[in-house]
């Protein structure tokens, strides 16, 4: 029998058995993956294809390349929104797995591809779906990519703002020049005084983008607990997640103490301020 007849087609219709044959493994690149990775990639692929957003975001593709032309990331990275869309529309578990290692993180989420796409695809949106899955399954490459974000994740989870002025340290942001950090010698005062010179009290903090009340951050954390975000984060970074839970626990205690302290003021009030228990 001719060897050509035995060659598997690289399609989605390969059964598990077919896909496990050596020739198929070679042609689809799956021999690079460990058996655990193969299993996980199949699972991710299934979840990806069955996400309701897949049907809504991926409509078809003329391969015109306009998305890639307008893409800022494509200009500087080995990345192409067209390729991502092709993988989303016609790819298999291996191509999706490969794309989810690094490429999806090149995307700027600027939505220029969406605005350009003559077919009306939501390319930035489908890339986000891939990213969510890569976080949820705690892929190693994702952990590496997001490693520098521990600080902003902490801020985000605890007070719901990402950038605080004390993150913009001269050491790490030397390329932004002396003015961005409020540390310029011209003014001869510290960054805290520079913050106090902002004419609104809510912004006179260096620890988060603005002062966030304890109730607000507890409400936010409640949302994260209830909507699975905390579980997602646990998959990515269990240590960080435990630390966040501790921080929030402290804030809950702080909140309860304040509740007693301000009992009289709150007594006559209605709405969440009266009912929210932290």
């Amino acid at each position: 029998m001719s060897i050509v007849a035995n060659l598997p087609r690289r399609t989605l219709s390969l059964s598990e058995e077919e896909a496990a044959r050596p020739v198929a493994m070679h042609l689809t690149g799956r021999q690079r993956l460990s058996s655990e990775e193969r299993t996980l990639s199949e699972k991710i692929f299934e979840e990806f294809r069955s996400d309701p957003r897949h049907h809504e975001f991926v409509l078809g593709c003329l391969n015109c390349g306009e998305c890639t032309t307008g893409c800022p990331a494509a200009r500087f990275y080995d990345f192409s929104p067209r390729e991502m869309l092709q993988i989303a529309a016609n790819g298999d578990a291996t191509t999706l797995w490969d794309a989810m290692q690094e490429k999806i993180w090149a995307c700027c989420q600027c939505y220029t591809c969406n605005m350009r796409c003559r077919f009306g695809n939501d390319i930035a949106g489908i890339i986000s779906v891939m990213r969510e899955l890569s976080v949820y399954h705690g892929l190693e490459a994702t952990r590496r990519t997001l490693a520098p974000f521990g600080r902003s994740l902490t801020l985000l989870m605890t007070v719901g703002t990402q950038v605080s002025s004390d993150m913009i340290q001269p050491d790490f942001f030397r390329d932004w020049g002396p003015f961005a950090t409020g540390s310029d010698k011209v003014w001869q005062v510290g960054a805290d005084v520079m913050r106090r010179a902002i004419p609104t009290d809510v912004l006179q903090t260096t620890r988060s983008a603005w002062e966030v009340s304890v109730q607000t951050s507890l409400e936010l954390f409640r949302i994260y607990e209830e909507t699975g975000v905390l579980d997602m984060l646990r998959g990515l970074d269990p240590d960080l997640t435990e630390m966040l839970v501790d921080i929030i626990e402290e804030r809950r205690e702080e909140f309860q103490e304040a509740r007693e302290r301000f009992a009289d003021e709150i007594a006559g009030m209605k709405g969440p301020v009266a009912t929210f228990q932290g």
């Binding site: 015109c64 390349g65 306009e66 890639t68 032309t69 307008g70 192409s80 067209r82 350009r116």
Partner: peptide
């Protein structure tokens, strides 16, 4: 592939067509 942007080319006079 489609051209997605037309900008003045460096050196003047010509137009730079960018695409994939």
């Amino acid at each position: 592939g489609r051209i997605g942007a037309v900008t003045p080319a460096e050196g003047g006079g010509r137009l730079l067509a960018t695409g994939e």
